[in-house]
Amino acid sequence: MRNFIRFISQFANLIFFVVLEVLCAILISRTRTIQGNDLVNSSNAVSGFFYKRQNAIVHYFGLGRMNDSLLAENRKLHEALANLQFATANFSDSITRLPKGLPDSAHRVTYARYIFRTAKVINNSVAQQDNYITLNRGADEGIRKGMAVISSSGAVGKVVHVSPHFSTVLSLLSSLQEVSVHLKDGTVGISKWQIEGTRPSPDVLYMTDVPAQIPMRIGDSVWTTTYSFFPPEVLVGIIQKVFIVKKTGKRLLYLKPANNFRNMQYVYVVENTYSEEQKQLESENKLEQNKPKKRTK
């Protein structure tokens, strides 16, 4: 017993050191998944306050840029509005009244309804392996986990943590997040930030395993699909380089992200009002799969 106490007192510092490191390891292991990381993150009140102050200073330097992005967005909205008016304008002849530009069916199918909420970026990083963005809106303003975040120029990420007044977003610049995207001709693929053998950079996203016969050109746009948590047809990036993987014969596309992750100021948090229903339905499929299968003789 005395030996044991002497052992403890001799190595007290070492033991304390090991205990602290194990504590750190537990904290780290919680962040290796998208769901974890509830304990320490910048959506808590103290760091939120810190970043809000910092943002109040930096905000002014970005006013010019912000104006430009708002102008660009206004232009886009005007264009969309005009197109919509064109599409829904009725044209009547002596026989029928049909909405022009819409398919000739009596009903219109609503796939999903999206609610847009604006938010300001108060913290942002691009240099890490998994980059997070902190927004100045939280649960009190209706932000929930899993909502998509887009900016006026393109896709940004997904809300992962929410506190009453702040929320953190896992940006596309993360190894944890892959997004389903499609090319101009409808080819669906996955856009990733990190693939083996390349250096992650905030200016490049990769789209892997594109079949070689698909026609594409440098400068083509890549949009989100209806399969992802993003609303469909949000710009993800522009092809800046096409690379042919010799081993598989497939193409690897280097995308320039549509959204400049270095200087985001305002973003939209998009809520899909039917996502709960969809998730519930899909989870039923999974339950079905997990049931023990009957062996056929």
Binding site: E21, C24, I26, N41, S47
Partner: peptide
């Protein structure tokens, strides 16, 4: 370390390095 972790969303990585 943990204060920096809280500010940078790294949950324990800075703390582990700083304790060492």
């Amino acid at each position: 370390g943990i204060s920096v972790d809280a500010l940078m969303n790294t949950g324990g990585m800075h703390a582990a390095a700083t304790v060492l």
